[in-house]
Nucleic acid binder design. Structure first.
Lengths: 200, 200
DNA sequence: GTGCGGATGTGACAACCGTCACCCGGGGGT
DNA sequence: ACCCCCGGGTGACGGTTGTCACATCCGCAC
């Protein structure tokens, strides 16, 4: 019997996934959590064999959750199930030692199989995504990322400067760098590109 | 027995919802479709009692699907199940005569109940969303919407002008209007605001 | 200490953006 | 015929953005 904890913020999807997994005779969904912090508490309390988690959740993301489990050396395998086919996310997930990374686009039947594979100590990584993951790396450094994120939210250069204790000129330099590295025409396009790759 | 067709682009969620609904003894999921066009074909072929559909799907959106069903006067009730708590979406859905509008944030148990309610001819609208829906209306006109959408994708004023056969000056006038109406500081913020309200 | 590299600033320039006042032409009302 | 509104355009203004060359400072290797 594989003991599973489910973390997913959208209640309807959470309930549906739980129903799906409970159809399997060798899988038991112990509990489910609606956000990262709750999931962390349940992980410690229930010590499940496998945690199935979304990435985007309020509070603590699935990636941070995986990192935390690794840091505490808990014997809990992690499977990420997410909408986002962003190479950067997969990379970070692998760095955090997750056992599986599946897309919500993938067929539902695969989830139970992936769960069994990971429980046995194997890995279940979405194949087409695995290819892209090592193709192009994030060219941005920390400053460029911060600045680009704020710019994408509609802040002006001076605005960003005061938030980060930088001069507005420096902010524009970083933005210019980022735009150049991404081959974009302006900050808006750069933001969209970076976001789509999972780099922000 | 309520005969249901399910339309949802994310395979895993589709499978999970299907499993969830099939647990109910009075509900039968006839088939499921991965995009709007496929859903439309299945609606015609199977004549389900109720169509449960997402909004954001490749090809044809759930809203367009609902409109099409209404236009053809098919005896198929529609329930929208979506991530997006955007008042504008609910408004359009109601205009298209849908029977239900639920958020994926809502508890999964509610789905079957909503299905029964709608099948009986009732309505199942997410309550807190229903309030917001009539609160503030979209202040943008068509031109402003088009222009703002393109601007949000990173196009410059002249760029947009040539796409819409307008002068770049006029484009800037429209953008200025839109920014003003939305109380934003620049096009980026205006885009984000409009998008978040479901107005674009 | 010298030298190098990274992080941050500065100043200048051209292009672009946001705003405003105003112009034009074509429908509708009346 | 008259007026007025509406979609679209113009031109000018000041501010912002994107780019680049150059300056400064600090830490670290040698």
């Amino acid at each position: 019997m594989i003991r599973v904890l489910l973390a997913e913020d959208q209640a309807m999807v959470r309930g549906a996934l739980s129903a799906l997994l409970n159809l399997e005779s060798d899988i038991e969904v112990l509990a489910s959590a609606a956000d990262g912090e709750a999931a962390w508490r349940e992980v410690q309390r229930l010590k499940p064999d496998v945690l199935v988690t979304d990435i985007e959740m309020p509070g603590l993301t699935g990636l941070e959750l995986a990192q935390r489990i690794r840091r505490h050396e808990l014997p809990v395998k992690v499977i990420i199930v997410t909408t986002f086919a962003r190479p950067g996310f997969l990379r970070r997930a692998l760095d955090a030692g997750v056992g599986g990374y599946l897309l919500k686009d993938a067929p539902a039947e695969g989830l139970a199989d992936a769960l069994r594979t990971v429980h046995r100590g194997g890995r279940a990584i979405d194949p087409q995504l695995a290819l892209e993951a090592w193709s192009d790396a994030d060219p941005l450094n920390d400053r460029e990322r911060q600045v680009l994120r704020l710019a994408g939210e509609g802040h002006s250069a001076s605005d960003i400067g005061s938030q980060l204790n930088l001069s507005h000129g420096t902010v524009r330099n970083y933005l210019s760098e980022a735009i150049g590295k991404l081959g974009a025409a302006n900050r808006i396009e750069a933001y969209r590109l970076a976001r789509q790759k999972g780099w922000l």
